[in-house]
Write a protein that binds this DNA or RNA. Structure first.
Length: 742
DNA sequence: AGGTTAGTAATTTTT
DNA sequence: TTACTAACCT
C-alpha cells in the first residue's frame, strides 16, 4: 500500500508522457524532443524515420510550441508529403489545415506566386514541364544560329539545370562554373532562355527555387516576413538536397535556427540530379552547435541482411558513420544468397522459380520485388513471369502527367484558358493532323514576332490573310474559332464539361479512337481519368495551377503482384523477399557512372547496393550471370566487385561451377574503370575456376558453344574469340566457354 | 505535308 | 535488340 502510494506520487510529479512519445525508443525520442536549435537526424534504413518526422511535427503542435502554419515541412516527393499529412492528422485525430507542408518545388511555387513581380513574372505564371522546356530551349538555340546537330539541346539543358541546381542565375555564372558548350555560348544562351521565359510569363522547375532564393536574398523585408512566419523547419531526405535548396533552407532558418534535417548519407543516390551529399556531411559546420542524433535500431531486416549491408557500405570513405543494429528480438534469419548463373535467361529462370517456391511457402507476391540497376533489365524478368503466369507490376516509366495524351490534353486546356500560352498552343496546333506543317508554323512565328502578339492572335491574322494556302488557312481559322468558343464556354460552364467538349470538338479523342496501335485504348482511359481528376478542383485555373507540381503517379498498388523496379525507385520501400539481379562489372556498378564520376560515383553505386539490400525484410537473393546479351550481342561479364565486399559468413554462395575465371581483360575494356578500381582479391574457392584448361584456338578452327552451337573462329583476341556460328551468326565470346571439336 | 526508311545511340529521374 | 530522329521520297 505504501509502495503503491509512492509510485502514484512519482507518476503525478512528472507530467504524464503523451502516448505518442511512449511508443518511441530513446534515440527516436531524442530526435523528437530536441526542439530548439539545429538538429540533424541520421536515420539509417528501416529505423523509423517517417515516424520520427511526423511525431516531431505533432509534438511541436501538441506542446504549444507552434501553430500549424508556423512550421515549414519540406519533402522531395508528393507521396512523402501526402503521407506526412495523413499520419499527422491521424496522430492529432483531426484534419490539419493551413500547413506549409509540401515538396520543395510546391512550397517554392507558393512563395513565388506571392512575390512574382520581384523577378519580372506575374503571379499567374505557368510552370513548364520538361517537354516545354526542351522545345523552348531548342527555339532559343535555333534563333541564335546554333548548330543543333553538333550541340544537342539536351546538353545545354543539362548545363542550365546544373547551374540552377547550384543557385546560379543567368548573368551570374562564376568563372569556375563556366561551360565550354557550343564554343562558350552557354551563358549567353542561358540568358536568352531566361528572357524568353519571362516574356512568356513562365518558369521551369529549377526556376521555382532559384527565383525564390534571389527574392529572399535581395529583399530584406520579404525575408523578415518569412522569419516571423516560420518558427520551425523540418526537412526530409536531406541527403538529396541540392545547393539551391540548401540556400533556400539556410536563408529561411537564419535567426531562430530551429531547423531539423532528417536523412541518411548512406542513401544518397541522386547526385546526378544535382543532389550534393556534402550538404548533409557538413551540417555541423553550416549550423554550429548542431545536435546530431543517430537512429540505428533497425526494425525491418534480419541480422544477416543488416550485416551484409553494413559490411558493404563500410567500404565508403565519405560518410558520417552509422551502424545498423537489429532492433528486433526475432532477428536471426537466412543468409543472403549470392547465385552465379550462366546467362541472363538462366538468371530470370532462377528468379521465377524462387518466386513460385516462396509463394507456395505462403509469402504473397506483393511481398516480393526484383530490383534492377537500369530500366531495360526488367524486360527479361517480365518475359519470364509472363511465361510462368506470375502477376507482376513494373513501377516507374512515364508518370501519368508525362504521358503524351495527358500533356496534349493539358495543352488544349492551357491554350483555352489563356490565349497567350504559346507553348501550349504550339504543342497541339497540328495534333491531330490538320495539315499545318513547317511552312504554316513558320508563318505563324513570323507573324507573331513581327506583330508582338501571341501565336493564337497571329493564327487569327493568318486565317484572314492570303499568306497560306487555302487548306491550312481554313484549318487555322477553325482552330482559332474553336479556342474562342472554348474560352467563352469556360466562363459559364463547369470546367470538366468544357474539358470534355474541348477534347471531342478538337478531334483529339477521335484521333486515338482511330489509332490502331495497342496503346490507344489505354490512352483513352487515361484521358477519362484526367477528366475525373479535374473534378477534384474547383476551376480550370485551380486545376492547371496544381497539375505541374502535384499530379500523382499512376501506379496503384492493387492485386497480389511481384514488384519490378529500379533500385532508385525502390528507395523508401520494403519487401519480405528482394531479388537483386545483374551484379556484374559494367552493369552494376554501372560503367557509365564510373566513367563520368570516378571514385565518387563508385561510392554512390555502392550506396545504391546498400539501398537495395536494406529493402529486404527476410531474404535477399543477389545474382550475376556470366553471359549477357547487351544491345543484341553476347558479352561475358565478371561478377560485381560488390559481391566481394559482402561478409563471407553472412552469405551463402550458390551455383559456383559456371563462373568464369578472374577477370582476364574485362570485356568493358581498359578505360577509366581500370584506373578507379581497387585491385581485386579473388578468394580461392569463392570464384571457382572451370576445371577444364582453356585451349588455344586458331583462326578457322571449329568450335562448340553451349548456347550458340557450332561455329568457326574468325578472330582471336585476348582470351576472347570472334566466332561465326552456324545458327546464331557472329558472336564474341570468352574462349573459356567454347570447346574445340574435331 | 506526311509517311517511310536508314542511321545512331543506348542509366538512374523525387519536381 | 530497340527506339528515336533526321533525311528522303511520294
Amino acid at each position: 500500500m505504501f509502495a503503491g502510494c509512492s509510485i502514484a506520487a512519482r507518476v503525478t510529479a512528472t507530467p504524464p508522457l503523451p502516448a505518442y512519445l511512449s511508443r518511441l525508443n530513446p534515440e527516436q525520442r531524442a530526435a523528437v524532443e530536441t526542439l530548439d536549435g539545429p538538429l540533424l537526424v541520421l536515420a539509417g534504413a528501416g529505423t523509423g524515420k517517417t515516424r520520427v518526422l511526423t511525431t516531431r511535427f505533432a509534438h511541436l503542435l501538441m506542446s504549444g510550441r507552434a501553430q500549424p502554419h508556423q512550421v515549414l515541412a519540406v519533402t522531395f516527393t508528393n507521396k512523402a508529403a501526402r503521407e506526412m499529412r495523413e499520419r499527422l492528422s491521424a496522430m492529432l485525430q483531426r484534419p490539419v489545415e493551413g500547413l506549409w507542408l509540401g515538396t520543395f518545388h510546391a512550397l517554392a511555387a507558393r512563395m513565388l506566386r506571392r512575390h512574382a513581380e520581384l523577378v519580372g513574372l506575374r503571379s499567374d505564371f505557368t510552370i513548364l514541364d520538361t517537354d516545354d522546356q526542351a522545345r523552348l530551349l531548342k527555339q532559343v538555340m535555333d534563333a541564335a544560329g546554333v548548330d543543333l546537330k553538333r550541340w544537342p539541346p539536351n546538353g545545354l539543358m543539362a548545363v542550365i539545370q546544373r547551374w540552377k541546381d547550384r543557385g546560379i542565375a543567368a548573368g551570374k555564372v562564376p568563372v569556375a562554373e563556366t561551360s565550354d558548350y557550343a564554343n562558350n555560348r552557354a551563358e549567353a544562351l542561358y540568358a536568352a532562355y531566361q528572357a524568353r521565359l519571362v516574356a512568356l510569363n513562365a518558369c521551369d522547375f529549377g526556376d521555382l527555387l532559384l527565383h525564390v532564393v534571389e527574392i529572399l536574398r535581395g529583399n530584406e523585408d520579404v525575408l523578415q516576413r518569412y522569419h516571423r512566419l516560420f518558427r520551425y523547419i523540418l526537412v526530409d531526405e536531406y541527403q538529396d538536397t541540392n545547393l539551391v535548396q540548401y540556400m533556400w533552407l539556410r536563408l529561411l532558418a537564419q535567426g531562430h535556427r530551429n531547423i531539423c534535417c532528417v536523412g541518411d548519407d548512406d542513401q544518397s543516390i541522386y547526385s546526378w540530379r544535382g543532389a550534393e551529399i556534402e550538404n548533409i556531411l557538413r551540417f555541423e559546420k553550416d549550423f554550429p552547435g548542431a545536435v546530431i542524433v543517430r537512429l540505428e535500431s533497425n526494425y525491418r531486416s534480419t541480422r544477416p541482411i543488416l550485416a551484409a549491408a553494413s559490411h558493404l557500405i563500410a567500404r565508403n570513405e565519405g560518410r558520417l558513420g552509422k551502424t545498423l543494429r537489429s532492433g528486433r528480438n526475432d532477428a536471426s534469419g537466412e543468409r543472403v544468397r549470392v547465385v552465379s548463373l550462366w546467362d541472363g535467361d538462366e538468371e530470370a529462370r532462377m528468379v521465377g522459380e524462387r518466386i513460385e517456391q516462396e509463394q507456395r511457402r505462403g509469402i504473397s507476391l506483393a511481398e516480393m520485388a526484383i530490383l534492377v540497376r537500369a530500366g531495360f533489365q526488367t524486360r527479361a524478368f517480365e518475359e519470364r513471369l509472363v511465361t510462368l503466369g506470375v502477376p507482376y507490376r513494373v513501377f516507374g516509366g512515364a508518370k501519368f502527367y508525362e504521358r503524351a495524351e495527358i500533356r496534349d490534353a493539358i495543352a488544349y486546356f492551357r491554350a483555352s484558358a489563356s490565349a497567350a500560352d504559346d507553348l501550349a498552343f504550339e504543342r497541339i496546333v497540328n495534333t491531330p493532323k490538320r495539315g499545318l506543317g513547317d511552312t504554316a508554323i513558320n508563318a505563324l512565328h513570323v507573324t507573331a514576332r513581327e506583330g508582338q502578339m501571341p501565336l493564337q492572335v497571329a493564327a487569327g491574322r493568318l486565317a484572314t490573310s492570303d499568306v497560306l494556302r487555302p487548306r491550312p488557312r481554313a484549318s487555322l481559322r477553325e482552330l482559332v474559332e474553336n479556342f474562342a468558343r472554348w474560352r467563352a464556354l469556360l466562363e459559364r460552364e463547369s470546367h470538366v464539361v468544357t474539358a470534355a467538349q474541348i477534347l471531342e470538338e478538337s478531334g483529339y479523342t477521335d484521333m486515338w479512337k482511330q489509332d490502331r496501335s495497342p496503346e490507344a485504348p489505354g490512352r483513352l482511359d487515361n484521358l477519362k481519368e484526367l477528366l475525373r481528376a479535374m473534378g477534384d478542383f474547383p476551376s480550370m485555373a485551380a486545376f492547371l495551377e496544381h497539375i505541374a507540381l502535384v499530379m500523382e503517379n499512376d501506379d496503384k498498388a492493387e492485386g497480389d503482384k511481384v514488384s519490378l523496379m529500379t533500385l532508385h525507385a525502390a528507395k523508401g520501400l520494403e519487401f519480405d523477399l528482394v531479388f537483386l539481379p545483374g551484379w556484374e562489372e559494367g552493369l552494376f556498378p554501372s560503367q557509365r557512372s564510373l566513367d563520368e564520376g570516378g571514385a565518387k560515383a563508385l561510392e554512390e553505386e555502392r550506396r545504391l547496393a546498400y539501398v537495395g539490400i536494406t529493402r529486404a525484410r527476410k531474404l535477399c537473393v543477389i545474382s550475376h550471370a556470366a553471359n549477357r546479351r547487351i544491345y543484341g550481342n553476347w558479352t561475358s561479364s565478371i561478377p560485381s566487385r560488390f559481391l566481394d565486399e559482402l561478409p563471407e559468413g553472412e552469405v551463402q554462395r550458390e551455383g559456383a561451377d559456371l563462373r568464369p575465371k578472374a577477370p582476364p581483360a574485362s570485356v568493358f575494356g581498359g578505360g577509366p574503370l581500370m584506373g578507379t578500381r581497387q585491385p581485386r582479391v579473388i578468394e580461392a574457392g569463392a570464384w571457382e575456376v572451370q576445371s577444364r584448361p582453356v585451349p588455344d584456338f586458331a583462326v578457322g578452327s571449329r568450335v562448340f558453344h553451349q548456347k550458340f552451337g557450332y561455329g568457326r573462329v574468325t578472330a582471336v583476341e585476348d582470351g576472347r574469340l570472334d566466332i561465326e556460328f552456324e545458327k546464331a551468326g557472329p558472336k564474341r565470346v570468352m574462349a573459356s566457354f567454347v570447346e574445340a571439336v574435331q
